[in-house]
Design a binder for these strands. Structure first.
Lengths: 149, 149
DNA sequence: TAAGATTGATTCGTCAATCTTT
DNA sequence: AAAGATTGACGAATCAATCTTA
């Protein structure tokens, strides 16, 4: 407060970058008529169907929260519950055709939005940034959020 | 899908880094008995009191959302509404003493959590990462989220 | 017109308790 | 008993639309 300001530190820019990513999610998902939480949820299902417990681990939410989000997405025709052949207690949640359309479109548009955030960087700078950020995410066991494949 | 996997791209690691930052907010704010949204809200008020419209712009939320969050924080004794001397319609929202304690504590702990995300990087790497991320945030008019002073 | 506040509806998220299957 | 999942109750977040007042 008596100190001169100086440039914002790493923590601050990390928080602000997260804010930009969140805003991208919010804006794009709204265009698809779903909430950011639903978009995040559908994104996790893109590679393959998941059990509820698996979704709990990946999304970091309470069990009942996941159940509620599955219910909502199912009501909207975006996901389907299937019985797990191996365990009759378990359920596997997978995208419907409509759900895949929304998930893929949302994924593509969100990716584009986020790519544009670094539009002013050179290819080398982007590679450096990606490598350093990857170190951060690798060191902190991020679950398979935003899976590419 | 026929392609070999390769390392995750910049977009993916940005999303995952945002996920880590969000998780830090969620965990820390819970320790202080408030929601992540309230923590974000209080953080914005740390440097100075703000009008409702200003909060709408900074937080990117609807007016009624901000009013509701002010109401809740006020009920919890964390903020206070004051009359704007310049505009008799306007209200200025500022932290109470209790609110400042919570906001500062939350800020400190969240900062510490986020600092630790890059614990494995060298000082040079952190500086490089901060500089590149700062380019990203500067180019995308992030509002004064997580102000340091 | 602009700043706030309010209302009503939906979703998000948690916890505690319950049910079924293993 | 333990695991997977759901239900019910509740607080909080969010928006659109409306209302009040300056």
């Amino acid at each position: 407060v008596g100190k001169s300001e100086g440039p914002p530190g790493l923590t601050t820019v990390l928080v602000r970058a997260a804010f930009l990513v969140n805003a991208a999610y919010t804006d794009v998902s709204r265009q698809y008529g779903i909430s950011p939480a639903q978009a995040q949820f559908l994104a996790v299902l893109r590679p393959r169907a998941r059990g509820t417990s698996e979704l709990v681990a990946v999304l970091g939410l309470a069990k009942s929260t996941v159940t509620g989000m599955v219910n909502l997405a199912e009501r909207n025709g975006l996901v389907r519950r299937e019985a797990d052949p191996a365990d009759s207690r378990a359920v596997r949640v997978g995208l419907t055709a409509a759900g895949r359309t929304v998930a893929d479109g949302c994924f593509t548009d969100t990716s584009r939005r986020i790519e544009q955030l670094s539009a002013s960087l050179t290819a080398d700078e982007r590679a450096t940034l990606a490598a350093l950020l990857r170190r951060v995410t690798d060191d902190n066991q991020v679950s398979a959020i935003f899976p590419e494949a």
